[in-house]
Design a binder for these strands. Sequence first.
DNA 1: GTCTATATTCCGATAGAC
DNA 2: GTCTATCGGAATATAGAC
Lengths: 203, 203
Amino acid sequence: MKAKMNESTKEQIIRAAYDVMIEKGFSDTKMQDIADRAGINRTVLNYYFRTRDKLYQKVASDILHQGMPQMFETLNGDLPLFEKIAVFTEQHINTILKNPFMPLFMVSEIHKTDSPFFQSVIDNIKPNIDGFVTQVEKEIALKHIIPIHPIQLYINIISLCVYPVMGKPLFSMFAGIDEPAMTQLLEDRKKEVAQMIIKLIKA
Amino acid sequence: MKAKMNESTKEQIIRAAYDVMIEKGFSDTKMQDIADRAGINRTVLNYYFRTRDKLYQKVASDILHQGMPQMFETLNGDLPLFEKIAVFTEQHINTILKNPFMPLFMVSEIHKTDSPFFQSVIDNIKPNIDGFVTQVEKEIALKHIIPIHPIQLYINIISLCVYPVMGKPLFSMFAGIDEPAMTQLLEDRKKEVAQMIIKLIKA
DNA sequence: GTCTATATTCCGATAGAC
DNA sequence: GTCTATCGGAATATAGAC
């Protein structure tokens, strides 16, 4: 009934779509742009994905699945808190460096009131930080760390990992430093962020 | 030669455009959407702004001019460092709370390779943090604060102010708390962020 | 200054040949 | 599985009446 699809062509399209979307943004990316980037005829995109929406949702879904599951796994896992923070921050900065488009996409998308596909991906991943919150509360009770709202701590960690990478060109411009220097600063942060957080909460 | 334009209608259009763009994103906002929101005929938009691009650039320029000049003024100003950090963080969080769309827009826009208008706005504002960097270096030399890369400090401050507000719906979803609770957390941060930063750098 | 009507451009989707 | 040709719809810009 169904002809076997060429996986390599399909993968090629997804990669091209991802690349163009990073450059031009989600909504500004046209089917023609993607076809041009992939070096194939535009109608082939319709053959493989039928509609524009289907292709875009596939790319978006891939983006979201690329880092989120591992992130929550580490965060809710069994490592001792300080060790967990060290592992998580380095891992998370690496993830965002590989996909600087991901947080930008997530923030943009969640702001749009009607984003059924985003909701469906979230339903699938089921993100939560319950394990982390419980652990922090326990460490506070044991007086290993100072009293701090666990969610504020979570927000601090994420913000110090994500926004520096996401806003890299902005920081580079405002601080008047060039791209290699900025890259080095972000590299340094892989170790520094954890040290900062720990200094902040250590009892 | 030129007929006097009705300023109030023009302002009405800009406000409507801004509101719709926050909800739907920059590129997804159509001229018709803006006209509907403002309750006026779509062609009137063309009368006042001639092209879609002109209108969008006007809105974008307004957004950028809304917080950036004050931000750099405070940052490079004459306040003692700790006091400056307290004033800046509260001021900046308030600015972002009033315009959560601003950082998202700036990050999106700077990622697009060809953004001549963004460049022109930047050229106009001339952002720099030289005063802040000099002050931090002086405080380090005086051993008032620990040795820290001034730009890393700047990145930390901005990230702790901006991303929590920008990613508010994401944090709310991941942490499993409702909107009012999240709003309260952000309110608390107006004081807490400065305290955290100061604890972090105090010698 | 505002509206109606129209022109134009662009994009997505599909049919049909190969 | 891929290409050519074409249809249909949406969105912007403009001309001209009031």
